[in-house]
Design a protein around this nucleic acid. Structure first.
Lengths: 187, 187
DNA sequence: TTAATGTTAGTACTAGGTACTAGGGGTGCT
DNA sequence: AGCACCCCTAGTACCTAGTACTAACATTAA
């Protein structure tokens, strides 16, 4: 028998998976200390649970977030573009995650929803570069992390370089957001 | 003399620094091939330029973006809170970056500005948890990457669980955004 | 008691390096 | 022409955080 706090394999594996998500930057050595088992045991555990080695985990985080940051900040569309008829209408889909929401309530933050709507509005209008001038929006009901947002945008009027776009977002056919945008095409 | 495309040290170093930012995931071996020099030369280059090894670079990207994603999605305030009088008013500051803007024009995307405004509005009201119900916003002029946004929020009226907040954002005393929010405090 | 499961130990090997020593080749200066 | 200096290349020992594998012991269940 060893000495201290030794838990069962099942419990260790349980705790293991959680820890890997919280802190992907931990080495086998540290893990071995933490659970007071040998490094070999940790390696068998990772093998069993299909958890890659530290370097791979770090690389994965790097690549994922690298992409993510680029997607959030840089893409023309927040969410996935499903359908688009330039100058007329468009549909995009956004799967909400825990990161988009308040920790306490799991309710998705408004600006994430707004971002989807605004970027879709910008995408549907038939202009090279456009900026949002005015918008009038209403959040109709709470959105919880994990729910799939379907945004539909429709161009209602075009007057000179001003484009009027209506956007509605639904979750399971229930409206959660609606907004009117006036977009200004710039040269 | 070797054989092919060999450029000067200065030019290599120049190109080197750029490449490291574009693609931090490249190994010394690949770099050696790319510049048709030996691995040792690449290592001397990195030493000279103070560029860490691949693993450290990857780790850095991982950590940075890890934090970034958390900041964007999770913080209560987008930008830095400068002043706050709960239930009355608040000021926040956001330094815009190239990532927040359209690549072509360098103009900051609307939703980044909106996010600052909305999150500040949520912060000033004296309620544990609140959601945005309605908002009415106007972008008054373009914001370019690098400009410092100062958001001022003021609670104008409270009726039951509805909080009316006005937010203005300025760059060098010039208004670039104004918005009215109706926030709903939830229990 | 035997078999299965869980744990530890150790070896050979890997990638992608650091740190260091040593030497060759071209250029510039005197 | 001689020599110094820079640039580049080569090679060795060592490092971390592993993989892949073999072997043996400990614990538990049948």
């Amino acid at each position: 028998m060893k000495n201290k706090t030794k838990i069962s394999k099942r419990d260790r594996h349980e705790s293991f998976k959680e820890l890997m998500q919280e802190d992907p930057f931990i080495t086998d050595e540290k893990l071995a200390e933490k659970y007071s088992v040998s490094i070999q045991t940790i390696r068998l555990d990772r093998l069993e649970l299909g958890i890659p080695e530290l370097r791979e985990r770090v690389k994965k985080v790097a690549k994922k977030n690298y992409d993510k940051v680029r997607t959030i900040f840089s893409t023309e569309i927040i969410g996935e573009l499903i359908d688009l008829e330039l100058g007329k209408n468009g549909i995009s889909m956004l799967e909400t995650t825990a990161e988009m929401s308040f920790a306490k309530t799991n309710i998705v933050r408004g600006h994430n929803i707004f971002s989807q709507a605004e970027s879709l509005a910008l995408a549907v209008i038939d202009a090279d570069i456009a900026l949002t001038g005015v918008s009038n929006i209403k959040y109709l009901s709470k959105v919880h992390a994990g729910e799939k947002l379907i945004a539909k945008a429709e161009v209602t009027r075009v007057r000179g370089n001003k484009h009027f776009v209506h956007v509605t977002i639904t979750v399971n056919q229930i409206q959660v957001f609606r907004g009117k945008f006036i977009l200004v095409a710039v040269k």
